[in-house]
Design a binder for these strands. Structure first.
Length: 453
RNA sequence: GUGGUUGUAGCUCAGUUGGUUAGAGUGCUUGAUUGUGGUUCAAGAAGUCGCCGGUUCGAACCCGGUCUCCCACCCCA
């Protein structure tokens, strides 16, 4: 049999031990902060029924769902004429499951399905991979991890405030220089109403979302092509010109959307949230950005996005409030708010800036060199004691050449190597070599324990 | 989904207008050094030139297709 070239599917990756240590550093940091704020973990299956997923992410999102072919003779149940049917229709007949696209929709499903076991407000976190049939590029993968925190069953803006604090904490701990952008869908809706194009709300948000990327002129072109009137576009202009502090912007906004009840409500919400941070100082900048829109169309209130400074990559965290995500699953009037950290992008940012703490890569603290069977037996109980004292340690599994054993320790960044041969066994001491300085000295086991703890 | 780009040793990359046996650095193995790694020196192993087909006496090189990587758009973490 011809050897087949090993490979993984497009947009997926293997992770080496070094990469995993770094990834886990991110996951652990995020998880710790989530827990600190009283969130508990859940997990949901990798695959969901297509009926759960379809239609939740807009037309674009539906196309990006990975669908799973039904088992067995899946073609036998197809009712359509195979030579005529469109592939989009056929896919629904031969596939009834799909890989999850995000963690928010499965969470909404979870809440409704387990209503009896849940007390509201329900605070959960969830760190799992999601899949999107997107074409890969910088910072974009087909399989990637999201780290979600959501509260469901509480309208209080205190939840939004808490999420901002969580973002602040996490990026501070990871030492990633970033800026939190906040906006509110109600403000955007209010603006659409004010300029007399409430039906074009989605087109307007999508277009102005691109403002900082393609510029005012191109945005206006796009708006025009979507059928938005010239006078409406003209009215939009002062909104983009807003400047000054967050509170300055809010003041001007109030004037602009004064005839829209929804718009005013949105302004008030943002104001309330920002007010809290007068007494709760943040490490990271929090900026009201009216061009922030977010594509996912289930958001209804506050929306958030975090961008890393110093690195050209999409957002590293995003989220917002959704008033009726559980509605489609039969639970009305339950509002939730949540955010999602993109662990893979955070990794890319940290890797590019080279800001992973050096010490996380060195996992093993101590290695015993293996000189043979007798020495092994002498070392194993000592090794056990080190481990009982919480010191990561190992013994080289065979009595290979010293050079090989030392190279192994060196490549694994093990800071201490212990040599116990006939000499040491006679004297009842250990030769401890510091791999960084190159110094070595004899000491008793007790002294070693002290040195390491 | 649209457009562009890339693929040669484990890794990073050379490879002339198509012409004998495809190279370098690094890593790996071995030795100099039988109880000492990270420096040095010497030797060695390692490649279906992404894959399939075509043109040619002859293809890593030219042509077609396909896969992959990366980039932009779309969209998003």
């Amino acid at each position: 049999m011809a050897a087949q070239k090993p490979s993984v599917p497009k947009g997926t990756r293997d992770f080496s031990p070094v990469e995993m240590v770094k990834r886990n550093f991110i996951f652990d940091t995020i998880k710790d902060v989530f827990k600190r704020y009283g969130y508990l973990p859940i997990e949901t299956p990798s695959m969901e029924n297509l009926s759960t997923l379809m239609g939740k992410y807009g037309e674009e999102g539906d196309k990006l769902l990975f669908k799973i072919l039904n088992s067995g003779d899946y073609l036998s149940k197809v009712k359509s004429n195979l030579t005529e049917v469109e592939s989009s229709k056929l896919s629904l007949e031969i596939s009834e499951k799909g890989l999850r696209y995000d963690l928010t929709v499965p969470f909404a499903r979870f809440v409704v399905q387990h209503l009896n076991d849940i007390t509201f407000p329900f605070k959960r976190y969830q760190i799992q991979p999601v899949w999107r049939a997107d074409r890969p590029q910088k910072g974009r993968y087909r399989e990637f991890y999201q780290c979600d925190v959501d509260v469901i069953g509480s309208n209080s803006l205190l939840n939004e405030v808490e999420l901002v604090q969580i973002i602040d904490q996490i990026f501070q701990k990871l030492n990633v220089n970033s800026v939190i952008k906040i906006n509110n869908r109600k403000i955007l809706l209010g603006i659409a109403e004010t300029i007399g194009e409430p039906d074009k709300f989605i087109d307007i948000t999508v277009a102005i979302d691109k403002l900082d990327k393609i510029g005012l002129e191109k945005v206006n072109e796009e708006l025009l092509s979507k059928g938005i009137s010239k006078t409406a576009i003209e009215k939009l202009k002062p909104i983009f010109d807003l400047s000054g502090s967050n509170f300055d912007k809010l003041k001007s906004l109030k004037e602009i959307v004064k005839d829209s009840e929804t718009g005013l409500k949105g302004v008030e919400e943002v104001e309330t949230i920002l007010d809290y941070f007068e007494i709760l100082p943040l490490n990271i900048e929090l900026e009201l950005d009216l061009t922030l829109a977010r594509g996912l169309n289930y958001y209804t209130g506050a929306i958030f996005e975090v961008k890393a400074k110093d690195v050209e990559i999409g957002s590293v965290c995003g989220g917002g409030r959704y008033d009726d995500l559980t509605g489609v699953f039969g639970l009305k009037d339950v509002s939730g708010v949540g955010i999602s950290f993109g662990a893979d992008r955070i990794y890319d940012v940290m890797e590019q800036l080279n800001i992973f703490p050096k010490e996380i890569v060195a996992s093993t603290k101590v290695m015993f060199v293996n000189f043979g069977k007798n020495e092994e037996k002498y070392c194993l109980p000592l090794l056990q004691k080190l481990r009982d004292n919480g010191i990561n340690s190992e013994i080289f599994p065979e009595s290979a050449k010293m050079k090989k054993q030392m190279t192994y320790a060196n490549n694994k960044n093990i800071p201490f190597v212990i040599l116990v041969g006939a000499n040491e066994m006679d004297k009842g001491v250990l030769t401890v070599k510091d791999m960084i300085s190159g110094d070595q000295s004899e000491m008793k086991f007790k002294e070693l324990l002290q040195k390491l703890s």
